[in-house]
Simulated assay, not measured.
Amino acid sequence: MAYFIESETYIEQTFRRRSVTREALNRLEFEDCIFEQCDFSESIFTHCKFIDCTFKDCNLSLINMQSTRWFGVQFFECKLVGVDWTTADWPPFHLDSELSFERCILNDGSFFGLTLQGLRLVECKCHDMDFREGDFSHSTLIDNDFSHSVFMRTNLQSCDFTGSSNFNIHLLENTLDNAKFSRFEALTLLYSLNIELVD
Rank of each mutant, 00 (worst) to 15 (best):
V150N: 03
S147V: 03
C33G: 00
L62Y: 13
L197Y: 00
T46V: 14
I105P: 00
T162S: 15
S158N: 14
T87S: 01
C124H: 08
D57Q: 13
L190H: 03
F75K: 00
S100D: 05
L60C: 15
Y10K: 05
S139G: 15
S110I: 02
C48Y: 02
I105V: 12
L99E: 05
D84V: 02
T14Q: 04
L99Q: 09
L62F: 14
Q37N: 14
F101Y: 15
S61M: 06
M65Q: 07
H47C: 08
Y3W: 06
L60P: 08
T188K: 03
R132I: 10
Q37M: 04
F146H: 08
I105H: 01
F30S: 00
S192Q: 00
N194P: 00
G118S: 13
N64L: 10
S100A: 13
K49S: 06
S67M: 12
R17N: 14
R120W: 12
L25R: 03
W90S: 14
R16A: 11
I169K: 06
F111N: 06
N155G: 05
D39C: 07
S149P: 02
W90D: 09
W90T: 12
D84P: 02
S67F: 08
F112E: 04
L176V: 04
D96K: 06
V122F: 14
Q157R: 11
Q66K: 13
S137L: 13
C104W: 01
V81H: 08
R132M: 14
S147F: 00
M129S: 01
Q37S: 15
K180R: 12
H94K: 07
R132G: 10
